[in-house]
Design a protein around this nucleic acid. Sequence first.
DNA 1: ATCAAAACCGGACCGTGGTCCAGTTTTCTT
DNA 2: AAGAAAACTGGACCACGGTCCGGTTTTGAT
Lengths: 228, 228
Amino acid sequence: MLYAGFMSAVLPSVPAPQEPVGHPELVQLGAALGGDEPCLRADAARNRARLLEAAARLVAERGAEAVTMEAVAAEARVGKGTVFRRFGDRTGLLTALLDHSEKKFQASFLSGPPPLGPGAPPVERLRAFGCAMLRRSAEDLELQLAAEPCAPRRFTNPARSVLRHHVAVLLRQAVPEADCELLSHALMGQLDPALIHHLTKQCGLPMVRLEDAWTDLVDRVTGTAPTR
Amino acid sequence: MLYAGFMSAVLPSVPAPQEPVGHPELVQLGAALGGDEPCLRADAARNRARLLEAAARLVAERGAEAVTMEAVAAEARVGKGTVFRRFGDRTGLLTALLDHSEKKFQASFLSGPPPLGPGAPPVERLRAFGCAMLRRSAEDLELQLAAEPCAPRRFTNPARSVLRHHVAVLLRQAVPEADCELLSHALMGQLDPALIHHLTKQCGLPMVRLEDAWTDLVDRVTGTAPTR
DNA sequence: ATCAAAACCGGACCGTGGTCCAGTTTTCTT
DNA sequence: AAGAAAACTGGACCACGGTCCGGTTTTGAT
């Protein structure tokens, strides 16, 4: 039970809007993984269910991009404001939709059987984790993407492409036997502006640590001896 | 001159909207890195300049999030439609703003002096590239983020955090001497749903290749001998 | 200089995400 | 059981991104 302190993270999301009293979705904190609806008012719980149901129906019938806040509200015979009060924003709603499969996945690597769950050596668990996640992503990819509006643009962006391609070329010179095209994506992940921002501004990490981590990553990936 | 075929990528972006005749920004293709404005009509070029100037003024005075298409149009004394015709969408405008520094950066590692530019061994170039990019990102971070709307949410997302933390824990068991917190970000980069989607749906890569790349990455990062 | 076609301008218009608050329903207290 | 407080509802409202098209300007051929 390693992640005991992270139970809250198993919940949908809703980054705590400016609610006067305890935010509905946040109260689930007490409800653990067992039950689903917590101390919601009767009608609120009913509407929540109807909304999720309506959203699921929409995504099934007309694709994830048809999941418009208004459309969901209409489909569930509920006011628009209710949707926002319940889920915070569009992302929150989509996240809630993904929540069930998310919980299952988390359970499988937190307490499931090896090699995904505890029991196997860490490296094997890592391998299994990646493959499991790849497969899982393939399933409800549409929702995952819909929950992250600007997702596709990140990789079709020409400027970003040039940078990544440059890394791929250098990698091919350094480790010709590897799948440098894909490896370059992993490296670029560590240089993503959004990540930089999150780590430096929000987490307060010093720049030098990022630089060290980068050179270390390069050394590991290329099999170079760490020269320091 | 390795990237000759990628010159187009040096340009802002504007993923080719449904323009009847050659799209303005796309015509720059002929203008290489030297000149700035290509075969734009006189008034169009004038307005383009005024728009960029106005946008820069806005971001300087009131921050990047004040760069609203309407605001820019108003500030430049120009119709809203003009902004969209010129830059396609908000992202296009922001990208155009970043274009200058982008070109400079690209030039520095494509044809600049070593170790960033050609001449140094690839691994050293990789190291230099990462650090350069980190520094560059720190500069105009605000714009970079503004150009990618949903950027911050990616890392504050609780579900994603749990997954990443799990990877970090496993990594610490496998390579205790490394900065596993940061390393885990690189690994997770390879499992990003948006990337999966791009590679499988858009590029048509088979799933198995992604899986192989993942296990290979894990092996490299943990220093495990590739057992296959 | 003149004229037609091509390119461009501007602002009205739409859909969507998100906010707000008056009125209603539920829950709690006594 | 009754009444007050807390919580919830729903739809009017706003801002912004993006589309469209009638009217204007530029271009280039004659």
